[in-house]
């Protein structure tokens, strides 16, 4: 796919870092503020789509690699399943870290409060796992479709 004009590329250079940081903020604060793994991963995936539209699929092969993204996707799904099986002493998907005093184990203040990052038990780890899986899944889908559009256009012209 041909790359777009200079205006679009300048605005993309200025903006895409902030979009990616906002997506990781939504993932990391999923147990305190609205959002979670799926929403934050979708925001980071839309930043990847912006890069692919403005730079074209050939030029963005340098910073978006399909092998690394699919590796992250499998890693996220395996981490999620392992966290689900870890609570199997009581039930499947039991929250074995909550209110235990260890990692993410502080008890939350009951009522309306500004929030503490060190609470939530296994929920922040599951947020990170699902967010990693969703962002690399959307990245792989968008990258594969952009390469396929480029390929069909080149084939019709020749």
């Amino acid at each position: 796919m041909k790359e777009m004009s200079r205006i679009v590329k300048t605005v993309t250079n200025f903006v895409y870092g902030f979009i990616i940081i906002f997506g990781f903020y939504i993932i990391a604060h999923g147990h305190l503020t609205p959002g979670g793994g799926f929403q934050g991963g979708a925001v980071v995936g839309s930043a990847f789509a912006l890069l692919l539209i403005s730079y074209g699929s050939l030029n963005s092969k340098k910073f978006l690699k399909k092998d690394i993204l699919s590796l992250f996707e499998g890693f996220g799904l395996i981490l999620f399943i392992v966290l689900g099986f870890s609570g199997l002493g009581i039930t499947f998907f039991y929250n074995f870290l909550a209110n235990s005093g260890g990692w993410f184990g502080n008890a939350a203040v009951i009522g309306v409060n500004p929030g503490n990052m060190n609470t939530g038990g296994v929920i922040p780890l599951m947020n990170i796992a699902v967010g990693l899986e969703v962002l690399s899944a959307f990245g792989v889908i968008v990258l594969t479709m952009a390469s396929a559009a480029e390929f069909t256009k080149k084939k019709e012209n020749s």
Partner: peptide, 23 residues
Amino acid sequence: IAEAAIGAGLTMAIFIFAIRGTR
């Protein structure tokens, strides 16, 4: 948040890829 990211971002990107591929 999910609707704004998926419905307004990724759907438009995939439609634009389809148009660029068939033109």
